[in-house]
Every structure is written in structure tokens, then in C-alpha cells.
């Protein structure tokens, strides 16, 4: 497609042009935000996530299920979708078997083509994360076949589980520690809060296209 020689023409111009570029440039000095102790990371993560209008709930180990149920109940959330093959998915399925409360659990089993119409009607989605970053702050998501990309985007409420010991000081650190360049999946993401805009008179508004609420459960 396109004109067959466009590529060649562009490259031949660029190869000629690049000779005018100064032979030496100072190397960019690496930019790394302040180092933080693990404790500081967690507290900064909580502080900045909250400032960005996310809700953050610290929980101990398995308590996240109870916390999740409480929120679902309080806010009268009718439907929650999840990836059934994930670790948290299995916990949810067993939990709902014994005590299914008022929220209906909807597993995402199919491709988007079959699931799309249903997905756009579901109230909430839950995902795990690769961790978080304190300098920002944000969640790190690496969606998988079991936990697809749209779980964290289409439902109006997004629940995310973060392990406290997986909160990195900065994006730079996360890139190194997670070996991001080599290991990242088809789509990787930073998410720092609910979807927002200030396009009308600079008034900050939440929930434009994606989630209106981001609820983060920090598992300690």
C-alpha cells in the first residue's frame, strides 16, 4: 500500500540530512526522582493516588475480599466482571459460591467480539496489577489473556489490587526492575486515577469515557 518508493525517498533525504547534525551531543544525564524507603513509597503512593481522586483502601492479606464486598454492597453495584482464571478470580469464584451477596459476578470467558455488548452494560470490573509507582502516583497494569485490557476501562467502576511490596519509587525504577523493555505484553499501562477532563473552562471533571471511580485495594 502507499507509493512503493515513499520509504526509499524519505530515507535517502534523511540520510543526507543527518550529516548536518553536530557530531557530538552531551549525553542526556539520567533522570531519577528521589529514592524512597519501602515505607515512604507506600505512604506517598497512597497520598498521591488519593489526591488524584482515587480511593485507596489498605487491607491485610485476604481481607481484600471482605473490603470489596463491603464496597459493592454499600454502593449497590449490581454486576462485577473479572478474569476467572486469575488468582484473584479463583478467590472470587469460591467466595461467591458460598455467599453470593447482592452483586452478580460475571466471568469474562470469551473474546471481545462475543462479550462486547454485555461488557458495556456491566457496572464494575476488577483486575490485579504489576504494582504501583510512588512518584506520580500510578498503578502498573500488564493485561493478560486471562485479564483483558478492557476490564480496567469499560466498566464505570474499576477495582484494582496492588501488593504493597510491589510499589516502586518511580516509573524509571519500574522499567528496570520489571525488565519492561523485554517482558512487557501487547499493552502495558500506567493508570493514575479515574478518567478525567478539563476541556470545559478548565473545570476538572471525572469519568469522561472510562471509569468514573478507581478503587485501589493495597494488600499489605
Amino acid at each position: 500500500m502507499g507509493k512503493p518508493n515513499s520509504r526509499e525517498n524519505i530515507f535517502s533525504r534523511l540520510n543526507k540530512a543527518v550529516r548536518t547534525v553536530p557530531a557530538w551531543y552531551p549525553d542526556p544525564s539520567p533522570w531519577e526522582p528521589a529514592r524512597l524507603t519501602p515505607k515512604e513509597r507506600i505512604s506517598q503512593f497512597k497520598e498521591l493516588m488519593t489526591a488524584g481522586r482515587s480511593e485507596v483502601y489498605p487491607v491485610k492479606g485476604d481481607e481484600w475480599v471482605a473490603q470489596l464486598k463491603k464496597i459493592l454492597h454499600e454502593r449497590r453495584i449490581n454486576t462485577l466482571t473479572y478474569g476467572p482464571e486469575t488468582e484473584i478470580g479463583k478467590v472470587l469464584a469460591t467466595e461467591w459460591e458460598t455467599n453470593d451477596g447482592s452483586t452478580r459476578l460475571i466471568p469474562w470467558n470469551n473474546t471481545i467480539e462475543t462479550f462486547r455488548d454485555e461488557l458495556f452494560k456491566i457496572d464494575a470490573g476488577i483486575t490485579s496489577t504489576m504494582g504501583g509507582i510512588a512518584d506520580g502516583a500510578a498503578l502498573i497494569l500488564w493485561p493478560t489473556p486471562e485479564e483483558p485490557r478492557l476490564l480496567s476501562l469499560v466498566p464505570p467502576v474499576h477495582f484494582a489490587l496492588v501488593r504493597a511490596d510491589k510499589i516502586f519509587a518511580s516509573f524509571t525504577e519500574a522499567i528496570k526492575k520489571l525488565d519492561w523493555a523485554k517482558k512487557a505484553p501487547t499493552n502495558s499501562l500506567l493508570i493514575s486515577g479515574p478518567s478525567r477532563t478539563a476541556d470545559i473552562e478548565m473545570i476538572l471533571q471525572f469519568g469522561v469515557h472510562g471509569p468514573t471511580d478507581l478503587i485501589v485495594l493495597v494488600v499489605e
Binding site: 498521591l48 488524584g52 512518584d135 506520580g136 502516583a137 500510578a138 512487557a184 505484553p185 501487547t186 499493552n187 502495558s188 499501562l189 500506567l190 493508570i191 493514575s192 486515577g193 479515574p194 478518567s195 478525567r196 472510562g210
Partner: peptide, 12 residues
């Protein structure tokens, strides 16, 4: 400090 989404796409 950071936008809501930083979206990195490596393929279909």
C-alpha cells in the same frame, strides 16, 4: 505530575 493514562502498545 502524571496523566491518568499512559498507554503503551506493542502490537495487535
Amino acid at each position: 505530575r502524571i496523566t491518568t493514562y499512559f498507554n503503551m502498545i506493542t502490537g495487535p
